[in-house]
Write a protein that binds this DNA or RNA. Structure first.
Lengths: 109, 109
DNA sequence: AGTTATCATCGTAATATTGCGATATATAAA
DNA sequence: TTTATATATCGCAATATTACGATGATAACT
């Protein structure tokens, strides 16, 4: 198959999984880290920095944009990408909640 | 292609991405949530609970085991799966660090 | 208008993932 | 020892992902 049965899971489960999925690629982690470090950057910076083709970087940026982790604003002929702080904070809290739970309980093994 | 160029990224980036990748499927999120809620469970419980085939659940459990998020202990003819608290805590901290950074800075847009 | 710079999109090849039936393995019970 | 139960693994088909060259689209500069 290759297709997940999203209909049998809750909205919450699908949303969280989708967020993690987007974060689940080293290039996208590297892109986020570079954007954070430089407090925003353009696509070409990432091409130089990461050593991936421009088309590839653009595709990764698209996926990050699709879940609103980053946003781009046009600046002349280039586009400045930076973290969407509100969404970032939301994801952070979402993750925190998810990871906090089990530590309050005792596992069976 | 379909293959990531892991060699151009740092160990850290690859490890974090791999963790997120494993969490990036609703079935695996649901499995973890059920294990947490029940404080451990067996494969068949998950088959009944999620409505996926036994082979499919087993495969998802394998991926979760591969990054040590869960561990299984044999109990008679079944295997009890539960959260590996140490690894869970480690991931939690890893995530926290990753998400904390940018909020201290001001973005360009 | 023509040129250059920057980024997005299209098309494609290679590979990965998802899901499941069938089968193998292992333990417990009869 | 046979049978039932629980899980893992194999093999396959359908689909998704990754990467990149080629091509478009847009804006600035000459």
């Amino acid at each position: 198959m290759g297709i997940s049965k999203t209909e049998i899971f809750t909205e919450e489960q699908n949303r969280l999984a989708n967020l993690f999925k987007v974060l689940g690629h080293p290039a996208r982690i590297a892109i986020l880290q570079h954007i954070i470090k430089e407090e925003g950057c353009i696509c070409n910076d990432l091409v130089d920095e990461l050593g991936l083709a421009q088309a590839t970087i653009s595709q990764h940026l698209k996926e990050l944009k699709q879940v609103d982790i980053i946003q781009g604003t046009i600046e002349g002929k280039s586009i400045c990408y930076c973290i969407n702080q509100n969404v970032w904070k939301e994801i952070q809290e979402h993750c925190q909640l998810f990871f906090e739970e089990p530590l309050r309980k005792i596992s069976c093994c």
